Simulated scan of single mutants.
Amino acid sequence: MVDTPPLYPLQFDPVYTSRDWGGRGLEALGRQLPGDKSVRYGESLELGSVNNGSLAGRPLDHVIEQYGKTLMGDLESTYSGKFPLLVQFIDAGTRCAVNVQKTHRAWYIVSAKPGAVIYKGFNPQRTLHEIRHAIESNDFDKVEQCLVVTPVKPGDCHFLHGATCNALGAGVVVAQIAMPGEGPLELFGWGQYDPSSDIEHALELAMLPPPDVHQFENRSHIAGMFTTVTRLVTCDQFQIEKIRMSEGYSQEIPYNQPAIWIVLAGRGTIDPATGAETVVFKCGQTMLIPAELGQATVSLDEDTIWLEITFPQVSATPLA
């Protein structure tokens, strides 16, 4: 019988995709982007193959299959061996196409140039006829008038209800948390109108007017002497909190479910208390914290900020 190595916080090799509309914004997080400096990257898929410890080189799906409940907790039987969320960075060097997706997602604004915007649903003052005409006329100004234009700044977090048309404006980098599902349907590419595109299908899917999402973006804030927790987004499928913890502080990790950490600033270590070696983390990394780590402890070498993504349908003790 082959021994199963003790589990520990997993780090990953991001999978980058170059896009004409992309940029180099992830370098600001300390990322060493592959290839020539002229390559513009639009997307980074974060949960690919493990790159640390004894499981290095293993795809996440294989690790889930091997460890089951130890990694996934009570989510194990719910998602049939697949991780239930997609985690990406998206870097819009220029304005992105307007798309519609069936599934919920959230955008945390990592960076944004002055005056940057996102597009978040159709303008309720516009009719379906006006929207269709603007798209088919390839009129940039009229299309923008048909959308809800939302100014953004770093630290904002926006929930995008399924079937809401959306796009990133130029100069915005986001961390995207999304439910897996079918690919997006493109409504408008800010370029030559393509009569073969399935605009009617996308318009049928898109909600007009856009749904009220304030209930999902209802922020709350818990402040302690060394730790601050800000709840950013909560829906049935995922919850996003922003954690700030002071340099030199240590605390047990209280989870009984998997959690994703996206490290936005600082550095520290996690002692898994499972017999595995200590894991070092830093700004720009994404980690998956297993459900069962024993009395694991996080310790900070610097003031550190990370996004913590958990699953509301599974009970958990907040890290505060």
Rank of each mutant, 00 (worst) to 15 (best):
V2I: 13
V2S: 15
L7D: 06
L7I: 15
D13M: 00
V15W: 04
Y16H: 09
G22A: 06
R24L: 13
R24S: 14
E27V: 10
P34K: 03
K37N: 12
S38I: 03
Y41A: 02
G48L: 01
S49W: 02
S54T: 15
H62N: 11
V63G: 04
Y67H: 11
G68I: 06
K69A: 12
G73Q: 08
L75R: 00
L85H: 13
F89D: 01
I90H: 04
G93W: 08
C96R: 10
V98S: 01
V98G: 02
N99D: 11
V100S: 06
W107C: 05
W107K: 00
Y108S: 02
Y108W: 10
P114Q: 01
G115R: 02
V117S: 05
I118D: 14
G121E: 07
L128T: 04
H133M: 07
A134M: 09
F140I: 11
D141E: 14
V143D: 13
E144P: 07
V149G: 01
P154M: 05
C157E: 07
F159C: 10
C165A: 15
N166R: 02
N166D: 08
A167L: 06
L168G: 13
G183Y: 14
E186V: 10
Y193D: 03
S196W: 03
I199T: 14
L208Y: 11
L208M: 13
H214C: 01
Q215L: 07
F216R: 04
E217K: 06
G224K: 07
M225H: 11
R231F: 07
D236N: 09
F238T: 02
I240F: 09
E241N: 03
S246D: 05
E252K: 07
P254K: 12
Y255P: 00
N256I: 12
W261R: 07
I262L: 14
R267K: 15
G268V: 09
T274D: 06
G275P: 03
T278Q: 14
F281N: 01
E292S: 11
G294K: 02
G294M: 04
A296Y: 14
L300S: 01
T304S: 13
T304K: 03
L307A: 12
I309L: 12
T310S: 10
Q313G: 00
P318N: 13
